[in-house]
């Protein structure tokens, strides 16, 4: 089984978000980038399934410029076998999906996994676009993934419940909790990751369909109004008469 795991390079979850003075770009200064936390579920589950089968390969794919390579190496250290970087800034979901679809097709991957969404763009789009471009099923968001031969059984989250879905390979799934416990690299993994293959390819396809014109930050909160714990019931009156939410 050939697994293709798509990872995104995102600001660390604790990052304070700021923009360049013209609000056109995210201010990267001093920001640490990590593997998108949702993608860690996809990566670890692919490695677990490969280990359980005793055969197969896990390839990591990132669409990004050279500065994403430390996180690609981290994915290799966690247990992926090799990696591909598409040498381009990820312009929008459609552009990224085109790159993934092209590589998935060329490499004839059986299982294409990614996180539910990236924590910076929050698009939740790439999975369906890749599935449609390749004409294969997409299961999103997937909370559970098991393989038996060429058939996968997945749990798909729906509002208020879940669906059990069975699909044959090839397919795309976007992963989320509680699929697995994401792994962290161990020392042996870090050592071996240095020599694992990382191929760099140039982007293909049509241009992006969307563009960010400007970023904005939410309005600041007025500050908290504290209510004495002894008189907690007062809060309910404020919620009704002042905030008018109940």
């Amino acid at each position: 089984m050939k697994f293709l795991v798509c990872i995104s390079n995102v600001p660390d979850t604790t990052t304070k978000i700021t923009f360049t003075p013209d609000n056109k770009e995210f201010n990267k200064a001093g920001v640490q980038f990590v593997i998108n936390p949702w993608d860690e579920y996809a990566l670890t589950r692919a490695i677990e399934l490969k280990e359980a089968a005793g055969s197969g390969t896990v390839t990591v794919l990132n669409v990004g410029e050279a500065d994403t390579e430390p996180n690609i190496r981290k994915a290799l250290a966690i247990g992926a076998d090799d990696a591909i970087r598409v040498n381009a800034a990820p312009q929008d979901a459609y552009f990224v999906a085109e790159q993934i679809a092209a590589i998935a097709k060329e490499g004839a991957y059986d299982v294409i996994l990614m996180g539910k969404e990236s924590i910076d763009y929050n698009g939740f789009q790439v999975h369906g676009m890749v599935g449609e471009m390749l004409g294969i099923p997409t299961v999103a968001p997937a909370m559970k993934l098991d393989l038996s031969g060429n058939t996968a059984t997945l749990e798909r989250e729906i509002e208020g419940g879940k669906e059990i879905v069975s699909v044959n390979t090839p397919f795309v799934a976007s992963c989320q909790q509680p699929m697995c416990e994401p792994r962290i690299p161990n020392m042996r993994g870090i050592m071996t990751a240095r020599t694992k293959p990382l191929k760099v390819v140039e982007p293909v396809g049509e241009p992006a369909r969307t563009a960010v014109a400007e970023f904005a930050l939410p309005a600041k909160k007025q500050g908290v109004k504290l209510i004495d714990a002894e008189n907690a019931g007062e809060l309910i009156k404020l919620l009704r008469n002042e905030a008018k939410v109940i």
Partner: peptide, 15 residues
Amino acid sequence: RGAFSGKAFSDVVLS
């Protein structure tokens, strides 16, 4: 649209 996990907004041009 909401971006950066609710910490910001982005104004996106749809072509």
